[in-house]
Structures are given as structure tokens and as C-alpha cells.
Nucleic acid binder design. Structure first.
Length: 901
RNA sequence: GCGGAGAUUGCCGAGCUAGGAAAAGGCGAUGGAUUUAGGGUCCAUUUCCGCAGGGAUUCGGGGGUUCAAAUCCCCCUCUCCGCACCA
């Protein structure tokens, strides 16, 4: 199908408002959504799966007679667009390269620099890609109602987000608290994955250390540890002889730690004061008391201590730390080594040192440490640890940590899981945000409501219902606002921007009445809560509004009442633990009854040529490129039949080729069509029945969203049937003519362009995209005729099997079909009214019993009707005989006797 | 580690929910047909054995339940995904 045809229909659909539905109380509505795309770049073949599935379902529901709303908007919230724009402003080479590659799909080379220049303003990136994505989606033939489109940066929409947050607040779901974040000291800003060097490939996260306080005469030492449960095994403390240590004041007490540690600590606690530097000798000359345990230990220099990890002070547990143990042995330190954790295995410090030969080869040091920690964490029991003895390591760790914190013997110290710098080269640490806003998803009433909702929804495939329920249980508080990024200002505190996933949980409501809300906002410059309460929650208006506003309010409410409930939302698995959970929980919190989500479809991931799609693998294939190269219908066909919805779909040339072949076969059958036949044969009746059997299977499968199976029936099987008619020597045009009308409608959800073109050429001058398909087709299927054809092919295959085994060439085939004798025998045998003279048939009957067909087809007639076909297929003559005697070896229904001469 | 999904033929993948002659469909391979240059299209074959439509063996490994197990139950091995503030 050439691009001109696609363009033509795309334009005509748009001009004729084919996909812009209006309220019609007489018709049942169906409201389907897919997540709005994020507009920081162009889309690749993987992105297209969800959107295409959405369109296929929208189109299918339309042909089933539903009033279908399939809208689309754009997500512009969050930091990535901002970050990309900033990098362009900084002339970052990789970012420029990336955006040039996006632009090269759409623009002439000479225009690119001008556009790139504009991208230094973030909103231009968002606007630009929203525009090209619309173009991509139109090219793909999506039946989207673009008149209801909006973005998360639109002012009127942000009124809804604010309303939503005030609702959450009134429900007691908003909270404030402390929260650790990744932070750049130089930039004085929170940093995300995008801001960190190699942040996407080597993830940085936050680790919680226990900063244990060792009391001394003049000041305390703070040693940050991940394993507070080993406290009773402490033999000494370590500091680095080369590092700078400082004395700090905090909460009426004095502490010593490395300078780097102090910097981090000061971002995690309030009112931390740097007093002075402290000489290493001063520290080394003192003893410090181990909390809880109570003994005093000395401080020893150790070069392996990293001043930029934790506090730069480490407590030494040679019994359970391989680093400490090796340093003990290498430096001949005589302190007693104490064991405080017991496991049943041989995995302990000494054995691991031997196993990996760590004294001579420290390359495996980290690995061995991991192995030890894992073993002790999961299987360890505390010993020699005072009142904590006999507790499991997991219990003891929590308990000791809490006991230490309670008496100010420890403070929480956060550290990054690896050393990280931003793209601009400044250091990334963990800072504590005061007054972080959270949405509290941990509340029981909300979890219960959400589970109820999930259990009332439809899931495709079913397995995601459990995944969804689990995700809801696992969710706790979620930070819901950030200090920067594109988005809506938090209504209670304008210094905060609502976080980008939290501003997109109920946005589908605005698809129903986008234009009216837009009007109201433009007219009033805001949208009061009482208006939105009225429209969305059916509450009474509190204020008086002018006629224009009232008109829009009434219309907006009608639209919402008619369309809402999002009947089906389609996404990918990575959304389960975030977007979909928020979607469900926010709806459960705010809405009820028919306005709650109706169903969820989760489609598997798309890979490309066997590998995960990523820039580094070089297998990113742009959606636009694909459509240009192949065609929208080919892409859509691949999405529909390439894999089951739940399984992963591999985009590759080989599978694509076979789909292209099938599609061009389909097109050429139509191309060669002419209405020229008055031929009559039972094969046409068979084809007709078989077609409606396939259509019936199509309906069954589409109703349960098994799109692949549905299209194997209606596309592949029907094509094969047509070929079969042709191979049998009959007229393919006559067969095609009988089903063309219904076939094109049924295929149109997946191949809208081809079907639209063929429909206009051969059927009539209306839009196939708006045609309905009759669901009641049972009376069009003649099962007897389908069985006849099955019978025929079974006989043929039996004959072939025999021919294969016998080595001599036969000339004539005698086919003896069952007669009245056999029929009567079966009936009488079942009724136990068998006469004596038939007894000799019993043995033969029993032997073949489970292969006998109990539909008594007129086999004599069928074989005679198809005599020519059989003879031609086998290149042999056949004799057909109807049996009328009692035999030792009988023909039975479905199993004629075959004798080759 | 926890939670989830999975292992079927040369390969990709159905079948498993409701147990009843395993191998749908596709790709690849083989043979044949076709005035097919080649790619194309069609027919057949593609676990093994078989000179009559038959038989045997198979669904990651090992047990069990059952007249009957790819399917239900238990154990083991291996693979993939998620584990949080990021769209």
C-alpha cells in the first residue's frame, strides 16, 4: 500500500471528523486510554506497541457498535526535558548528537541548527515533539480524537491537578516529613538519574549507615557502619593516617570525623558546626568507649580507610570483616579476635581468606566480603553479645540500631552506593530534605478500597491482577513534590512542584470535557474547586457563575457523566509498581461507582533483533522510519500477530518478511478481483461456512482481547481458505465476493488503510472505519459442510500415508464407504438390539471405535462430488463403492476402506 | 534474599485455567510442481520405526496422584523481570 493512499485516508478521516465522537445516550460508550507520551524525543518501534493495541481495540469496539472515545495528550512534567535543554545550552556533544538524530527524521539538514537553537528553551522541545508525535500517530492510522488533546503543562489542566491535591489533602493522604535525596553540593540542587554521570547505566542509590558514637574524654568519634549488630566484636577503631579530620559541634556535643564525612553529615542534620581541625596523633592517643558493650578500645592507623566513605572512621571487627582480619594479620596486630555471629556453614572469615587466597591476591576481596555478609545476614545468629545473643542477625541489626539511636549513641548517616559526580563534574552526596511532601499510600482504608477495585476490574492477561494487588500492598509513602522540573505548583506551598508521576494519575477525566474546562479557565482565569466538585463528584455549586460559565459547566458535567469510567487502560509492565498503582489508588480515593477504572491491559515489552532496545546496542529503530519503509498496516499487522499480548515481541526483519508476504498476497487477491463468475459448487458453501466459523472465532478471541488468535483466524485462515478454493480449481473471485463486505470490516482494526481503500473500491462509498459488524452469525455456519471438507482431507491424507509406505506405484484406488449395514450396526449395537448375523462385525467395530465419526455424513456423495479433485491431487483413478454387505473388515463412518491396486 | 514469570520439536512459539490420541501457527530445512533467470508461488515432508491408514518415544530433571498427566501435587536445576522516587 503506497504512502499516498495512507495520506489520502488519514486526511479524509480527519476532515470528516470520523473519530470525534459525541454523546449519544442510546449507544453504549467505550472509553479507552493509553499513557500519554513524554515529549523529550521521537518514538521508536517499541513505543508503538501500546498505542497500536489501543487503536486496534478502539476500532474493534467501534465495529461492534460502541460509541468509542480514544483520546491522547502529552506529558511534559518532570526534569528530563529541562535537563536536556540545559545540556544543549551547555553545548554537550552527546546531547546535540542525540537531538540531531531525532531531528534528521523530520527536518532538512539546513533547518536543524535553527531548531536546535530553539531547544535551549525547554518548552520548545516539548512543543516540537508533541507535534511530531501527533504526526507519527496520524501516519500510523490511529483513530484518535485530537480535539480533546492537552498536555500536563496546560494551565487549565493544572487546575485539575491542584484540585486533586486538595482532595488528597482533605482525605488525609498528604504528609510532610524528612527524606533523603541525592544532592549536588556545588549546584545546590537535588539530582536525578539524568544528572549523574553514567547514572543510567550504573545506578546510584542511597544506603543507610548507622553512625555509631564512641565516647571519649574530649570528644566522641563517629564510625558509620552497615552492620551495627557486630558491635560486640569491636576490637579497635581505624582512621586514615593521611586524611583530614575535624572536630564538629552538634547538639551540645563534640564529634570527630573526616572532613568529607562532616560535609555530608552537615547536609543531613541541622546546626552542625565546624570547630577546628584535629591532628591524627591526637585521635590515636586516646581511647574510646564502645556503646552498649562498654569496653574501651584504642585507635589504629589504617591506610585502607577511605575518608570519603561514611565518616572516615571505621570500627574494626576482624572476626566478621575480611578487610579488618587481613589488616590484622599483615600488620601483626595482637588484639584478640572475637566472634559474635554464628552460622551453620563453613562460610566465615578464615575460610574465605583461604578459599580466595586473599593474602596473596586481593582481587576477590569484595566478592568474598559479599559472600560473608550474605551468609551471616540470612543465616547468622548472634553470640557473645550480651542481651542480644541468640537473636538472628536480621533482628539484632534492627534492635541494636534502634537502641543506639534512642540513647543518642548513634545517628543515621546516609551514603551513596557508589561514588558519583554530576555530568558537570561536581560531587553527589546524600542530603536530607526537610518538609518533603508525600502522598501516603500506606493507609489501610485506601489499600482496601484499591484491592476491591482491582478485584472488580478486568485484566488482560489475568496474571497482572495479582501483580497489581502485590504492588498496592508494597507501596508506602511516596514523595510527591520536587524543587524543580516542569509541572504544577503545589497548592499549599508554591516552592514545590508536583512530581511528574503524581500529576498524571487521574488526568483521563479531562479527556471527557477538555474543551469546556479550557473555556472555563480562559474565561475565569482559574477553576474553582466547587466547579470541579460539581462536575466530577456531583456536588452542588457554591458560587454563582455567569451564563457562559454555567453553559460550559453543564456541558462539562454531561460529557463527564457520559464518558467516564475509563473502560480500558493499556500500558506496559514497568508501570505496574508506579503509574498504575497511583492510577488505581487515586481513583479509589477520589471516585466511586461507575467512574472507577473498568479494565487494564498490560502488553509485554518489545525487543529489537533479539536485544533490549537501547542506544548503546544500536538497535533503536524509529517508528516513523518503519512506517515510511514498510507501511502503517504492516507495522500494525506485526504488532497484532507478531506475539501474544503478554509475551515479548521481537522486532526483526525475518518475521517481518513473512508478514509482508502475507499482506501482499492479500492485496494481490483484491487487485486481481473481478466480479465475473456465476460458478456454482458446494466448495463455495464450504468457504462461506468456514469464513463465518473464522469470524466467530475472531469475535470470541477479540472479546477476551486475544488479538493475535483473532487475526490468525480472520486473516491467515481466511487467506488459506481462499487459496484452497483456488487450488481446488474454483473461482477465488466468487468466494471473495461472498465475504468481502464482512471481511474488510473485520480486518479494518488492524489494516485500516488497506481496508478503507479496498472498501471504497469494491464495496461502497462510506468509511469502513465506521461500519458495524453483525455479531449474530451462527445461522451462517453449516457445520455439516465443514465436516465434509474435513472428511475429504482426512481421506486424502490416509491415502497419502499408505502410498508413502507401500513401495510399488498404484494406479487405482478403491474407496468403499459405509452403507446402511454399518449404520444400522452402530445404532443397534448402542441400543443393544444387535441381531446375531451381525456378530462377526463386533471385533472390527471395537478396534476402530474411537476413530469412528458419529456424524453420519453422506460420504458417497462427498467423494463423488470431489472425484476430480482427488484424482488430480493424487494423480490416480478412484472407484467409489457404497458397502452393502457384512464384512470382517468394514468401512466405518469417517473411515472408508482404502484399497490400492 | 524477597516477590513475580518461565523452561514444549532445528529455532520462535501455542496447548496448561476446566487432565482424555502433544506438537496449532510461523521461521528454517528437504523433496516436488510451475516458460520460476535468481528471490516468487503452490503441494508435500520435517522425533523414530513401519511394504496398508499402524506402532514406539517424548513437553528442564526426579518423584507422586489417576484408568489416563505437557496439563494437578511435591522436590530439584536453570533463565528472565521488579525491589522505589525515575519518566
Amino acid at each position: 500500500m503506497d504512502n499516498n493512499i495512507e495520506e489520502k485516508w488519514s486526511k479524509l478521516w480527519y476532515e470528516n471528523h470520523v473519530f470525534e465522537p459525541e454523546i449519544d445516550e442510546g449507544i453504549e460508550k467505550f472509553f479507552v486510554t493509553v499513557p500519554w507520551p513524554y515529549t523529550n524525543g521521537s518514538l521508536h518501534v517499541g513505543h508503538g506497541r501500546t498505542y497500536t493495541l489501543g487503536d486496534i481495540i478502539a476500532r474493534y469496539k467501534r465495529l461492534r457498535g460502541y460509541n468509542v472515545l480514544f483520546p491522547m495528550g502529552f506529558h511534559e512534567s518532570g526534569t528530563p526535558i529541562l535537563a536536556f535543554s540545559e545540556r544543549l545550552r551547555n553545548n554537550d556533544i552527546n546531547t546535540i548528537k542525540l537531538y540531531k538524530s531525532y531531528l534528521s527524521e523530520y527536518e532538512k539538514p539546513e533547518d536543524m541548527d535553527i531548531i536546535l537553537e530553539k531547544f535551549k528553551e525547554p518548552e520548545n522541545i516539548a512543543d516540537y515533539f508533541a507535534r511530531v508525535i501527533i504526526k507519527d500517530f496520524k501516519n500510523l492510522g490511529y483513530s484518535i480524537d485530537w480535539t480533546r488533546s492537552f498536555t500536563s503543562a496546560d494551565k487549565f489542566y493544572q487546575e485539575i491537578v491542584k484540585w486533586q491535591f486538595r482532595k488528597l489533602e482533605s482525605l488525609g493522604l498528604l504528609k510532610k516529613g524528612e527524606y533523603p535525596i541525592l544532592y549536588s553540593i556545588n549546584d545546590e540542587n537535588a539530582v536525578g538519574e539524568d544528572d549523574i554521570k553514567d547514572g543510567d547505566t550504573d545506578k546510584v542509590s542511597i544506603e543507610e549507615f548507622t553512625g555509631v558514637v564512641f565516647k571519649g574524654k574530649n570528644y566522641n568519634l563517629m564510625a558509620a557502619s552497615l552492620r551495627p549488630e557486630t558491635l560486640y566484636g569491636v576490637t579497635n577503631l581505624w582512621i586514615n593516617p593521611e586524611a583530614r579530620y575535624v572536630l564538629i559541634g552538634y547538639k551540645n556535643d563534640k564529634y570527630v570525623m573526616s572532613y568529607e564525612g562532616y560535609l555530608k553529615f552537615s547536609f543531613q542534620h541541622e546546626n552542625v558546626k565546624l570547630i577546628s581541625d584535629v591532628s591524627n596523633n591526637d585521635i590515636l592517643n586516646q581511647k574510646f568507649k564502645v556503646p552498649l558493650y562498654g569496653i574501651c578500645v584504642s585507635v589504629i592507623s589504617a591506610s585502607f580507610v577511605d575518608p570519603d566513605n561514611g565518616t572516615g572512621v571505621v570500627y574494626s571487627v576482624p572476626g566478621h570483616s575480611i578487610f579488618d582480619y587481613i589488616y590484622f594479620k599483615n600488620n601483626n596486630i595482637k588484639n584478640e579476635i572475637k566472634n559474635v555471629v554464628k552460622t551453620n556453614s563453613d562460610t566465615n572469615v578464615e575460610n574465605l581468606v583461604k578459599k580466595y587466597d586473599l593474602f596473596n591476591n586481593d582481587s576477590k576481596l569484595k566478592e568474598a566480603t559479599q559472600e560473608l555478609y550474605k551468609e551471616e545476614f540470612y543465616n547468622g545468629i548472634l553470640i557473645n553479645s550480651g542481651k542480644y545473643s541468640n537473636l538472628s542477625v536480621q533482628e539484632a541489626r534492627e534492635l541494636i540500631k534502634n537502641d543506639l539511636l534512642k540513647d543518642n549513641n548513634a545517628m543515621i548517616f546516609y551514603e551513596t552506593t557508589r561514588k558519583a559526580i554530576t555530568r558537570s563534574g561536581s560531587k553527589v552526596i546524600v542530603a536530607i530534605l526537610k518538609d518533603q511532601w508525600f502522598i501516603d499510600y500506606s493507609q489501610k482504608w485506601l489499600k482496601e478500597k484499591s484491592h476491591d477495585l482491582i478485584n472488580s476490574m478486568k485484566f488482560y492477561p489475568e496474571l497482572y491482577r495479582k501483580a497489581m494487588n502485590d504492588a498496592i500492598d508494597w507501596l508506602r509513602e511516596r514523595p510527591a513534590a520536587r524543587k524543580r522540573g516542569i509541572g504544577t505548583k503545589l497548592p499549599f506551598d508554591e516552592n514545590w512542584i508536583i512530581e511528574s508521576l503524581s500529576d498524571s494519575t487521574i488526568y483521563m477525566v479531562a479527556y471527557t470535557n477538555r474543551n469546556e474546562l479550557y473555556n472555563i479557565y480562559n474565561h475565569l482565569n482559574n477553576i474553582n474547586d466547587d466547579i470541579l466538585d460539581h462536575i466530577f463528584l456531583n456536588k452542588n455549586l457554591k458560587n454563582k457563575y455567569d451564563d457562559y460559565t454555567m453553559e460550559n459547566i453543564v456541558k462539562a458535567k454531561n460529557e463527564f457523566d457520559y464518558w467516564y469510567g475509563n473502560d480500558l487502560r493499556i500500558t506496559a509492565p514497568p508501570h505496574i509498581s508506579n503509574h498504575l498503582s497511583f492510577y488505581i489508588m487515586n481513583h479509589a480515593a477520589i471516585f466511586s461507582g461507575k467512574y472507577l477504572p473498568g479494565g487494564l491491559m498490560v502488553s509485554g515489552l518489545v525487543i529489537s533483533n533479539g536485544a533490549k532496545i537501547s542506544k548503546s546496542k544500536g538497535n533503536v529503530i524509529s517508528l516513523l522510519e518503519t512506517v515510511k519503509k514498510y507501511s502503517a498496516d504492516i507495522y500494525r499487522l506485526f504488532i497484532a500477530v507478531g506475539a501474544d499480548i503478554s509475551s515479548l515481541l521481537d522486532w526483526n526483519e525475518k518475521d517481518l518478511t513473512s508478514i509482508i508476504k502475507k499482506q501482499s498476497m492479500f492485496l494481490s487477491i483484491f487487485e486481481n478481483y473481478s466480479d465475473n463468475s456465476d460458478d456454482n459448487n458446494y466448495i463455495y458453501k464450504w468457504f462461506y461456512s468456514s469464513f463465518y466459523k473464522n469470524l466467530k472465532d475472531y469475535f470470541t478471541n477479540m472479546e477476551s482481547m486475544d488479538i493475535r488468535d483473532a487475526y490468525i483466524s480472520i486473516f491467515y485462515n481466511v487467506l488459506n481458505d481462499l487459496k484452497y478454493v483456488e487450488n481446488r480449481g474454483f473461482n477465488i473471485n466468487k468466494a471473495l465476493k461472498m465475504v468481502m463486505h464482512d471481511w474488510l470490516i473485520a480486518l479494518s482494526p488492524v489494516m485500516p488503510y488497506s481496508c478503507e481503500e479496498l472498501w471504497h473500491k469494491y464495496v461502497k462509498d462510506s468509511f469502513v472505519s465506521k461500519e458495524y459488524l453483525d455479531f449474530n452469525i451462527d445461522d451462517k455456519i453449516d457445520y455439516n459442510i465443514l465436516r465434509s471438507e474435513e472428511y475429504l482431507s482426512r481421506v486424502l491424507s490416509d491415502i497419502r500415508e499408505i502410498l508413502k509406505i507401500i513401495k510399488y506405484p498404484g494406479k487405482i484406488i478403491n474407496l468403499t464407504v459405509y452403507g446402511d449395514i454399518q449404520k444400522n450396526f452402530i445404532e443397534n449395537f448402542n441400543n443393544k438390539t444387535l441381531k446375531k448375523e451381525y456378530n462377526m462385525m463386533i471385533k472390527d467395530y471395537m478396534k476402530n471405535k474411537n476413530r469412528i465419526d458419529n456424524n453420519f455424513l453422506d460420504e458417497y456423495y462427498i467423494l463423488n462430488e470431489n472425484r476430480e479433485f482427488i484424482e488430480k491431487s493424487l494423480n490416480m483413478k478412484i472407484n467409489i463403492i457404497q458397502c452393502n454387505e457384512i464384512l470382517l473388515k468394514n468401512p466405518w463412518p469417517g473411515r472408508p476402506l482404502i484399497k490400492i491396486e
